[in-house]
Design a protein around this nucleic acid. Sequence first.
DNA 1: CTGTATGTTCAGAACATACAGAACATACAG
DNA 2: CTGTATGTTCTGTATGTTCTGAACATACAG
Lengths: 165, 165
Amino acid sequence: MNEELINQFVETWGTMGSAWGVNNSVARVHGLLIITDRPWCIDEIVERLQISKSNVSTSLKELRSWNVIRKVFLPGDRREFYACEPDAWEMLFNIMRQRKQRELDPILASISLTCEQAKKAPSGIAVDRLAQMKQMLDVFDNLARLALKSEAQVKALVSLLPNRK
Amino acid sequence: MNEELINQFVETWGTMGSAWGVNNSVARVHGLLIITDRPWCIDEIVERLQISKSNVSTSLKELRSWNVIRKVFLPGDRREFYACEPDAWEMLFNIMRQRKQRELDPILASISLTCEQAKKAPSGIAVDRLAQMKQMLDVFDNLARLALKSEAQVKALVSLLPNRK
DNA sequence: CTGTATGTTCAGAACATACAGAACATACAG
DNA sequence: CTGTATGTTCTGTATGTTCTGAACATACAG
């Protein structure tokens, strides 16, 4: 078992999480499940990552809410194990779905409202600037919708992209 | 002057910032510059947003580092004014450029390294899972490269997207 | 039932971040 | 020069987040 490489990946994944607003512990647990590709139970994770059981429990709950891990029951074992979503793109889509819903949709609603009001208002504010922002967010919204509606096609499409030398 | 609508937008932009890992004050200042579309000096921002001068100064510095605002000198006024990048897409590209450089590139480098080592190693880790992750990050890298290399085309392309009803 | 294994929630400690105000730096007017 | 206007950096405090260990809940074996 190549402990050191696992650590490397887990810490990288943790760092990446931090950069994107995901708690470090949560991301490390996720990283562990990704890189080892086998089910882990809480106490094994506690032991492996040297963090408290409550922290692991909370992190797993968080990961479940993003639909990127699932419970696995091993026959003859009372403990609950967790394994990560096996398809990386599927994982990404699940995260996108959640983030769009939690973060993009409310913002878009709010900006649209402001935009509407601004058109009627006596003004003094940059109406077309505001419209530009709304338009940009709309584009994201549409891209996300398209991608999430046609997951298979997106997967196929990205595989056509030129590889960097 | 429509104070209330400005507040609405500024707070929304601040909230959005928080969701994407940008400090709330930084995002609010940015929002103010976006929505009013005219140059502001520090003390005006202090007065308008009711935050300290040091906070505004730091926030402006941060925004400058993302290349989304620029200094403006008004004739006959010693103060430094700031206005935001006038083109929303250009603003987005500038942010993408910075985030890619600061966050994606280092992660990609680290994962690539781990991936190489894993191929040679005695294993026990999920090599193909790791490769899948690397491949996904590569796709992002390529997409970002393409977009940033052909900004005009991207702007043209997104305008073709279907609008939501 | 009862005791043990397992998992979750809670409360406070440790840590990190954000912010205001003070101190400092700079540059210009007179 | 000197004093004032303007901006930046520093420092301590307040606020918020994360993490641990303990308390609590649940479920199963015997």
